[in-house]
Design a protein around this nucleic acid. Sequence first.
DNA 1: TTGGGATCGAGAGCACTGCTCTCGTTATGG
DNA 2: CCATAACGAGAGCAGTGCTCTCGATCCCAA
Lengths: 218, 218
Amino acid sequence: MNTLRTARERARATVVADIKATAQRHVASEGAPALSLRAVARELGMVSSAIYRYFPSRDDLLTALIVDAYDDLGAQAEQAAAASARAPAGRRWLAVARAVREWAEAHPHEYALLYGSPIPGYRAPQTTVAPAARVAFALAGVVRDAWERGEITIPLDNDVVPDDARVAESVAADARRVAEALELRAPIGVVARMLIAWTQLFGMLSFSLFGHLVGSVD
Amino acid sequence: MNTLRTARERARATVVADIKATAQRHVASEGAPALSLRAVARELGMVSSAIYRYFPSRDDLLTALIVDAYDDLGAQAEQAAAASARAPAGRRWLAVARAVREWAEAHPHEYALLYGSPIPGYRAPQTTVAPAARVAFALAGVVRDAWERGEITIPLDNDVVPDDARVAESVAADARRVAEALELRAPIGVVARMLIAWTQLFGMLSFSLFGHLVGSVD
DNA sequence: TTGGGATCGAGAGCACTGCTCTCGTTATGG
DNA sequence: CCATAACGAGAGCAGTGCTCTCGATCCCAA
């Protein structure tokens, strides 16, 4: 955050911020598919082509919003994890999950943007993966802390998956990969359980937010 | 399926079928947002306004595709449940889940249409809820059969939710509602566990299909 | 058999979209 | 001080969903 020296740089920064802010408002109120560059430009009192001085395409503007949303959600999750640092693991996980849920319920369209159907033509650029991983890191951090403190004592062998040992092995392979990506040193049984809880959390959120449930509360 | 008498009725039926078929192909290959009435009309050798003789709007065409997709998936799930009727409950659930997963992986864009972000302006009409419930019924049927056969013996009290009894009660309320909607006579602990497994299944599918996972297999 | 009414396809047109290109203007840094 | 880069405005292109009108065609009933 070094100060922008020339007047032009400052002006550009504020215009970029303005565009992002009004676009964010449009997404929050109408949803991502309804985001129109022309409408944003109109509201800002400029002409549509002027937007292209700041964002090379509509997708790039959307990407900027996605990154911001990931960062917002990630910060929320990290804060919940930090605030409950001294609580037992179950409560901590619940705290982070609650934070994610509250964010999702407060920003349903942004949640859809992050975790809903991908836009068919759109390829998420590399800049989104780090912010996207923040919430995963927050959840994994809770598990890591719990494991390092010896809080996890549940049986960890094969009851993760009902009966088939080969299926359990394929899950284990994925769990190992996830554990490596998240720098999580714990038995794969723990990692696999974390994955299950993780997917369940987002599955419930998607069901709830996208109207596939009558109404379920955590 | 009574035979259509007049030539006009027959012609109309085939044109409707043609429109749906090419629209379905477009959705399957390019995704729902890329579905263009004009493109469909062009491919069928008619003019865009002619489509409106058969579907009053783009959303209605999409609704027809959604209903067909729900029915296709529902049939798949029901068949898996029926084919494994004599197997133990765990295997049956897995069979239905596998059927759903295979359908989703074979029809990712349709899956996104059914279980992804809802189109902001779009309100799902009443005609979609019955087909949408088929897969839920199939899964619930497995649990119902298992319960009636006395196959479910796991402890069912409060270990569904870690500690908080009040939270468990709010979940129970929702589980009761779901049990009623699905005509499932079983303890709410069983229903709650089914809900968890259900949301987890679709959460995993969404993560996997929407590219939020490196690669996880069942 | 012969109307009359419903149905249908074609075409033009409206308002909108993302995006490109050009053309003056303005600010910046050498 | 001046060349250059950045900028905003405007026109324009190809595409979208959707509406309206206008003939042509078909079906049913008198």
